[in-house]
Design a protein around this nucleic acid. Sequence first.
DNA 1: GTCTATACGCAGATAGAC
DNA 2: GTCTATCTGCGTATAGAC
Lengths: 221, 221
Amino acid sequence: MTTSKQAAPRPTRGAATRQKILVEASRQFAVRGYYGTATRDIAEAVGVRQPSLFFHFPNKQAIVEELLRYSLERPTEVARQVLALPQPAAMRIYRYVWFDTHHLLASPYDLTGVHRDELMDAPDFHEWREKAHKLRRDIQELVRAGHVDGSLRPVDPVLAQELISGMNLNTIRMAHAGRPTPRVDVPTFVAEFTLRAVLADVTTLPEVAVGAMALPLDPAS
Amino acid sequence: MTTSKQAAPRPTRGAATRQKILVEASRQFAVRGYYGTATRDIAEAVGVRQPSLFFHFPNKQAIVEELLRYSLERPTEVARQVLALPQPAAMRIYRYVWFDTHHLLASPYDLTGVHRDELMDAPDFHEWREKAHKLRRDIQELVRAGHVDGSLRPVDPVLAQELISGMNLNTIRMAHAGRPTPRVDVPTFVAEFTLRAVLADVTTLPEVAVGAMALPLDPAS
DNA sequence: GTCTATACGCAGATAGAC
DNA sequence: GTCTATCTGCGTATAGAC
């Protein structure tokens, strides 16, 4: 264990190429979509020939699956933990939204392309569709919990979750789309924007924001 | 001029096929993306052979362009009109969001697939990218107007507009995704959700909602 | 690890009969 | 208007040299 940890299965030098493939592929997927991106495009962005990709990944699908893993595993874990925190649902939802935006923004990848229906609805990606679905349902449950404990307005949970997810993805898309990220703290902006829309009493927002970040979470799975 | 108006250039019978092509194509584009959808898939859904599509449209791009036209022309026109109304910006933004959600939901097409970057960023669709961009900037201007007249909180206009657009599209996507539309009035839900997040004073929401729908707009361009 | 050469299928589009 | 047959280019992936 003398070397640092690598998410990639290649501890040798040249693992840099593998990483670069993931970064460039995520950008292309975000802009042109998975099916709109040719492996030649990825290879060109990386600076290698097209067949060289297949030394690092068995096929195109494996590339996008690694991005899906990164995009879903940690948020799923966090959602599960947040769901169990002994707090009003308003605080827990704040925390989840904040984390999710932060996670997507801090990522080396532009993950806006891998959440689209064109992928999730394909039979090959059934497993990932399930995971994304489970995550959505956890958020819906959080909204329902807020109805019970009175911290959230009685909004339709599915509709609310869909609005939240849509906001989040579009923010990330914009942030990655070149122009310098706005001067505001984006995760906080998104979390507060969301909470204003669903809070039972808007005047509680400051204390919700503070309370939300108070309790610790496990750092990893 | 004895026949009723047709958006399509084919007043003969068999125009039904043309319409069906647009409907089915929009569905496939929403699910698999433009590049992920083969003209054979569209043809099969319509119930004709693949080359028959090319009697009604010169090529695949022309199909998606007609959907883009439907998706952007009226909302652009409405945004322009709303921008000029003598009202607080809060009311005008409410109205625009309500209209846009309503327009997308009432459409015979599932237009969630045609707004994606994979299309807009392609050189062939440059013209449409411009139109979409202009629409976004009108919304941003509306947010700024709200800062000036004091009806909206001083949120980052670009970020806010991006959140609004993201919400809207995801709602439509969900509504089209099979399951029976929630029992709530979706355009009103989305408009109120949005306004809560950006209103300077949330208690004014009821009067904003009423005032927003009071002034008349031109019915068509 | 990365290259060149290439196999092979699929997608968009045309020609021309009916 | 819709069909069958078919062309052509592109995209993923493999073989094998370096």
